Amino acid sequence: MPLLAELRNNGVVKNTGDAPTTREPVPAPALASVPAALEEQHGTRHRVARSILDHGPSTAAELAVRLELTQAAVRRHLDALVAEGTVEARAQRVYGHRGRGRPAKVFALTDGGRDAFDQAYDELAVDAMRWIARMAGGGEQGEAAVAAFARARANAQAERYRARLEGSAPRDRARVLAEALSEDGYAATARSAPASTGEQLCQHHCPVAHAAERFPQLCEAETEVFSRLLGTHVQRLATIAHGDGVCTTFVPRADGPALTSETTAHATASASTAGRNPA
Rank of each mutant, 00 (worst) to 15 (best):
D118N: 05
V65A: 14
G17R: 06
A104L: 07
L109F: 06
G101A: 00
H242N: 13
A279R: 15
E39G: 07
A91I: 07
D172E: 15
A61L: 05
G56T: 06
E179K: 09
A150H: 08
P170E: 03
A72L: 10
L4C: 03
L63W: 00
A37C: 08
A128W: 09
A60S: 14
A221W: 01
V126P: 07
Y121C: 03
R228P: 03
A120L: 09
A158R: 12
A61E: 11
L218M: 09
P207D: 04
Q71P: 00
H46W: 06
A188I: 05
S51Q: 08
L63R: 01
F215G: 00
T189W: 01
L81Y: 06
T189G: 10
G43E: 12
F215E: 00
P20I: 06
A89C: 02
S196P: 00
Q203K: 12
A145T: 09
E68Q: 10
G275D: 12
N10I: 05
A133F: 02
V126E: 11
L38P: 01
L230W: 04
E24G: 03
F215R: 01
R276T: 14
I240V: 15
V34T: 11
G112K: 10
A128V: 06
L67F: 02
E222R: 15
Q71A: 04
A163V: 09
T59W: 00
A174Q: 01
Q203H: 08
T264L: 15
R171Q: 07
T268P: 02
I52D: 00
E84S: 13
F149Q: 13
A267Y: 10
